[in-house]
Design a protein around this nucleic acid. Structure first.
Length: 312
DNA sequence: AATCATTACAACCGCTGTTGT
DNA sequence: CACAACAGCGGTTGTAATGAT
C-alpha cells in the first residue's frame, strides 16, 4: 500500500515528545485525521502508527500496566469462545483494555496452556492423534449452541449491567459455556465507554467518558490460583462433569472479586450475532480454534484426564 | 551471579471494509 | 460505478522484564 519509499518515517518505540505531540493533536482534532499528523509535519510517523499509539497507549482510561484480573480473564475466555478472535469486539467489554491487550493476553495464555498440557503429557509423545472419541466430545462441549435471538431470555438478566456485578458470584462464574451466561446480557443494554468514545461530545471530542461502572482498577495479585484456574478451566472444557468443581473455583474467585462489567458495548442488533461471528456452517461458534494453537499431544492427555474428583 | 526460558508488552505489517470523489 | 485514501482489525514479531535453574 505504501509502496513509495518512506523517507523520514520513524518507527519503533515512541518518545515522550512524540506522545505529547500526538496527544495534543487528538486534543485539538479528535481521534482521527491520523494521516494529517504527518502531512502537517507534526510527527514523522505514519497515520497508522499514530492511531495505534493513541488507541493502545495514550487514550484516556486505559489500564496500562495492569495485569488482567481473574474476572477479566474469564471474560476474555468466555467471549473468545463466543466471538472467536474478534479482539476488538471482545475488548469493548473490558473497559480500559485494548484489542491489543486482549490479543496479547490470549496468545500468552494459549502458550501457557500449551505448555501446561505438554508438560503433563510427557510420555505419549507422538502417537496417532484424534483416534478416540475424546476429540469429538470436546467439540460438542466446546460448541454450545445458543440462539442468537436472545431477546426473550435477556430480559430477566438485563439488570446485570446497571446493578450487581455479574462476577464474583459463584453462580455466574460457574464453568458452563459462556453464551448462556453472557449472551443475554449483551443485549438491550446501554452504551459503554467505548461506544461513547465513538460518539464524542462537541466540547471534548477526544475525551473518553469514565466507565459507567467502576471497573476493577487494581491489578489482581496473580497467584498459584492462576495455574489451577487455567487448568481447571481447560479441563472443564473437556469434561462436562468438571462443572462439579466449579463452586470451589468460584469461591476462590469470588474473593478477588469485584465487579465484572458485562455490559454490551453496542446495542447489538440481534441479527448481528449470526453475521458477526463468521462461521463456516452457520453456528455461532467454531470449536476448533480453541485447539488450533495447542499441541496435538494434548489430546492424548485429555484422554487420560481423571474425573473431577481426582482434581482435589 | 550467570544463563536460559518464559512472559508481557509494544509496535509493525498486511489485509479488508468504508468512505469520499 | 470505479478508484483511491483512509481507518480499523487481526496476526506476527521484536524486545525488555521477570522467573527458574
Amino acid at each position: 500500500m505504501e509502496g513509495r519509499r518512506e523517507e523520514g518515517i520513524r518507527k519503533g518505540p515512541w518518545k515522550a515528545e512524540e506522545d505529547e505531540v500526538l496527544f495534543n493533536h487528538v486534543k485539538k482534532c479528535g481521534p482521527r485525521d491520523w494521516s494529517s499528523i504527518r502531512s502537517k509535519g507534526l510527527l514523522q510517523r505514519t497515520g497508522k502508527s499514530c492511531r495505534l499509539r493513541w488507541v493502545n497507549k495514550l487514550r484516556p482510561n486505559l489500564k496500562n500496566g495492569c495485569k488482567f484480573s481473574l474476572e477479566e480473564e474469564r471474560v476474555v475466555i468466555d467471549l473468545q469462545a463466543q466471538f472467536g478472535n474478534k479482539w476488538a469486539r471482545i475488548a469493548t467489554y473490558l473497559p480500559g483494555r485494548t484489542d491489543n491487550d486482549v490479543k496479547n493476553f490470549w496468545s500468552s495464555r494459549q502458550k501457557r496452556l500449551a505448555r501446561i498440557l505438554q508438560a503433563s503429557a510427557p510420555s505419549k509423545s507422538h502417537k496417532n492423534k484424534r483416534e478416540g472419541p475424546v476429540y469429538d466430545e470436546v467439540i460438542t462441549l466446546e460448541a454450545p449452541k445458543f440462539s442468537c435471538s436472545s431477546e426473550g431470555e435477556s430480559s430477566s438478566q438485563a439488570q446485570s449491567c446497571s446493578s450487581p456485578p455479574c462476577f464474583g458470584n459463584s453462580e455466574i462464574i460457574k464453568m458452563v459455556p459462556l453464551p448462556d451466561l453472557v449472551k443475554p446480557k449483551l443485549l438491550a443494554l446501554e452504551a459503554n465507554p467505548v461506544q461513547q468514545e465513538l460518539a464524542p461530545t462537541e466540547k471534548n471530542p477526544w475525551i473518553e467518558p469514565q466507565p459507567l461502572i467502576p471497573f476493577l482498577q487494581n491489578p489482581q495479585p496473580q497467584t498459584d490460583l492462576d495455574f489451577s484456574l487455567e487448568t481447571q478451566e481447560l479441563l472443564a472444557r473437556f469434561d462436562p462433569y468438571f462443572d462439579m468443581l466449579t463452586p470451589l473455583v468460584a469461591s476462590e474467585l469470588g474473593n478477588g472479586g469485584e465487579q465484572l462489567l458485562m455490559e454490551p458495548p453496542f446495542l447489538e442488533p440481534v441479527g448481528s450475532c449470526g453475521s458477526g461471528e463468521r462461521d463456516k456452517i452457520g453456528n455461532p461458534i467454531t470449536p476448533d480454534f480453541v485447539f488450533d494453537d495447542l499441541p496435538v499431544d494434548m489430546f492424548d492427555q485429555i484422554e487420560l484426564l481423571p474425573n473431577s474428583s481426582e482434581q482435589h
